[in-house]
């Protein structure tokens, strides 16, 4: 499992990306992350929900109360236009980082 230090700066990006794909409620985001990373990245829900609240405070996402299919009410989050623009910036940053790391370590299979 990867240490949280390495990935800390990218949690915002991950959450925005997931919410751009689909509007989700808090625990759903946690489940999707767990599922997609095959448990390699186990983000604490305490961290995840706090990041979500920070993103909402910065108006990068908004929330509304919706009905879950076959279930009760949930607070769903969706990305605002501001959030979308911010995500694009973060994505560019990540591409740059990926290139740099690849240039440095890319062919090292030892």
């Amino acid at each position: 499992m990867i240490s949280s230090d390495v990935i800390r700066g990218h949690v915002d990006t991950i959450i925005l990306k997931l919410l751009l794909e689909k509007e989700m409620y808090g625990y759903e985001i946690a489940s999707v992350i767990k599922e997609r990373t095959h448990n390699k990245f186990n983000i604490k829900e305490a961290t995840l929900y706090s990041v979500v609240s920070r993103l909402e405070a910065r108006e990068l996402i908004t929330s509304y109360v919706g009905e879950k299919t076959h279930g009760g009410k949930r607070r769903y989050y969706k990305v605002t236009p501001l959030g979308r623009a911010y995500y694009k910036e973060l994505l560019e940053e990540w591409k740059m980082l990926r290139e740099i790391m690849f240039d440095m370590l890319g062919s090292d299979n030892s």
């Binding site: 808090g26 625990y27 829900e45 929900y49 979500v52 909402e56 279930g71 607070r75």
Partner: peptide, 12 residues
């Protein structure tokens, strides 16, 4: 917000 998210998880 943390309480709400936790309650939703419990309900799930």
């Amino acid at each position: 917000i943390l309480t709400l998210s936790l309650e939703e998880k419990v309900e799930d």
